[in-house]
Write a protein that binds this DNA or RNA. Structure first.
Length: 560
RNA sequence: AGCCCCGUGGUGUAGUGGUUAACAUAAGAGACUCUGGAUCUCUAGUCGCCGGUUCGAAUCCGGCCGGGGCUGCCA
């Protein structure tokens, strides 16, 4: 990867530079703190690239910390999946794998400290009562009748909460701050709730669990995080983050900095909506290639390098933005163009008979594997009397801008011969096959007399072709921001053409050397990847992204 | 309505008081080409509005307008 050293820094890196210059810090330590309640998606990738990326750039460290404070939603399965996805993206946390739940005792001790200082109290109010007392955006809240219990009583109660004397929801521990604070988060926020649930990491050791606001700053503090990076919706929580840490004696105070989360056009990022798409059968699972999940992107054939590059290029800011899906595609093409080996694959085969080519002859033509990378070498491609070309490469009545094959016209078969179409065989309106003649002098695709042809087309020898099922994927939604349309459900905008499956595609035999998740280019068609469901007798291929093409754009415009 | 955050080409990002406001992408045109790919060249397009400070404002100040977030015992 060629890094542009001159690239200007985002506001977070500027803060870090400043903190280093002023001596506030002499090292940098970040963290990626996922909650293990779902699969990672490209929005998380942005955060991962930011946190692990900063650690790399500043010669610092980045922890992986599971923020597992809610046993009712979290599972071990997600822990493993998240670790796998981070590794796949190309990042590593070495021995710094942490769980918030490992700090539960320490957090509890800190909570006792607040109770003793009169800064926290046990509230017997119901959830409904607490909500009613909170007030509204414009009106101050009311103090709970339990707010002024003595320190001794609070101490006694919180200990009994911990011992399991009370049922779920019977009591909570609250910070005593200000019920009329204009920031709702400061109106005596809940620190602990009672949850008699088994935790995937701590088992049944605890029946009270800390809330995010109470826990997160302490987690950062305990790990010595210098810069705690999170998304914009936590901005209003920062005063609380700071308040909790400031109440405690001699506790290290990390700095929380918020940035805008990633929004990508024509898709959705919310865990809830992602789950709904799967549960209701709109897609085939968490790794469906149409999904923006890391597992989906991987199965789509998007490389880790291209995703990292994407995350770097979109930048970090505080404005809510919507990134063009086309930009992601650009990043994928840019990487794959340099790295993907080329193959010939005919998606919609049209049979071609070369009338003047010897009946049983087979020639092996040399083809370059990657014109962008000489070290990729060459391979041999069979050429014979009966071939397949792309149906879209032949037009009986060519339009003025179409310069591929038609009756009487000569084109080049890539790495093969020049051929000229002499006849079209039809069954009703359907073209069954076409007949051509070849020029033996043009072997390899070169004309000794220097004559030019307008088009070069891919082909596959019929007898040597491997059959494959190819899935062509398109955007999942028909509108840029499906989740943001008023009075409509996001599912109203599902693109019914998001997946097109084509059977009996004809592929050059060399394709069998590839394994699942290997990416490659079908020349003139796009970038593809071997699907993991491929078996020895059933090759399945997914299209990652089509090649850019003026012809496709032209046709598209004509349709409109 | 209260508090907080944010407004730079279509999209995204830079620009931090001083040339013709930059880069990427998308769009259009052309060159080249054994991928209608890649590469190269060119074109069009931007500082939300109004005032103020200043010799000079995208940048500093005020007001307005617009967008987003916040009323879970979720994170």
């Amino acid at each position: 990867m060629s890094e542009n050293e001159q690239k200007s820094k985002d506001f977070i890196r500027e803060i870090i530079d400043h903190d280093l210059e002023t001596g506030k810090h002499d090292h940098i330590h970040t963290r990626f703190p996922p909650e293990p309640n779902g699969y990672l998606h490209i929005g998380h990738a942005k955060s991962i690239c930011l946190n692990f990326g900063i650690a790399e750039e500043y010669d610092g460290l980045c922890n992986l910390r599971f923020d597992d404070t809610n046993p009712s939603k979290e599972e071990m399965e997600y822990v493993d999946s998240i670790k796998e996805d981070i590794h796949w993206l190309g990042f590593d946390w070495d021995d710094r794998l942490y769980f918030a739940s490992d700090y539960f005792q320490q957090m509890y001790d800190y909570a006792l400290e607040l109770v003793k200082k009169g800064k926290a109290y046990v509230d017997d109010s119901s959830a409904e009562e607490i909500s009613a007392y909170r007030g509204t955006l414009t009106h101050p809240g009311k103090e709970s009748p339990y707010r002024n219990r003595s320190v001794e009583e609070n101490l006694n109660l919180i200990q009994r909460m911990k011992e399991g004397e009370f049922k779920d929801g019977e009591k909570v521990l609250r910070a005593k701050i200000d019920m009329s604070h204009p920031n709702l988060n400061m109106r005596d926020p809940i620190m602990y709730r009672i949850l008699h649930a088994s935790h995937h990491h701590t088992g049944d050791k605890w029946c009270i669990y800390p809330s995010y606001d109470w826990a997160h700053g302490l987690e950062d503090s305990i790990e010595g995080i210098t810069h705690s990076l999170c998304t914009l919706e936590f901005e209003n929580h920062r005063p609380l983050y700071d308040w909790f840490i400031d109440q405690l004696d001699d506790v290290y105070h990390p700095q929380q900095i918020e940035f805008a989360r990633l929004n990508l056009s024509y898709t959705i990022m919310s865990k809830r909506m992602l789950k709904q798409l799967i549960d209701e059968g709109y897609v085939d699972g968490w790794d469906d290639p149409r999904l923006p999940t890391i597992k989906g992107l991987r199965r789509r054939g998007f490389s880790p390098a291209s995703i990292r590059h994407f995350c770097k290029e979109i930048g970090i800011a505080k404005v809510n933005s919507l990134i063009d899906y086309a930009f992601l595609e650009h990043c994928v093409r840019q990487d794959l163009n340099k790295t993907a080996p080329r193959f010939m694959g005919v998606l919609r085969p049209l049979k071609v008979v070369i009338d003047n080519y010897p009946e049983d002859q087979v020639e092996y033509m040399e083809a370059v594997n990657n014109p962008e990378d000489e070290s990729a070498g060459t391979r041999k491609i069979p050429f014979s009397k009966t071939l397949y070309i792309e149906r879209t490469d032949f037009m009986e009545n060519p339009s003025k801008k179409f310069y591929r094959l038609s009756l009487g016209r000569e084109v080049r078969l890539r790495y093969g011969y020049f051929i000229r179409c002499t006849d079209v065989v039809k069954d009703g309106d359907e073209i069954v096959e076409i007949h051509c003649t070849y020029d033996p002098e043009t072997k390899g695709g070169y004309a000794p007399d220097g004559r030019r042809v307008k088009a070069t087309m891919h082909f596959v020898s019929a007898d040597h072709a491997v059959d494959a099922e190819v899935r062509l994927y398109n955007r999942l939604f028909t509108v840029e921001d499906p989740a943001g349309v008023k009075n409509k459900k996001f599912t109203d905008f599902i693109n019914s053409d998001s997946k097109e499956t084509i059977s009996h595609c004809k592929i050059e035999p060399n394709i069998t050397s590839l394994k699942p998740y290997d990416t490659f280019q079908f020349e003139r068609n796009g970038y593809f990847v071997i699907d993991p469901d491929t078996t020895s007798d059933h090759l399945m291929i997914n299209r990652s992204v089509a090649l850019r093409g003026k012809w496709k754009n032209f046709r598209h415009q004509q349709k409109k």
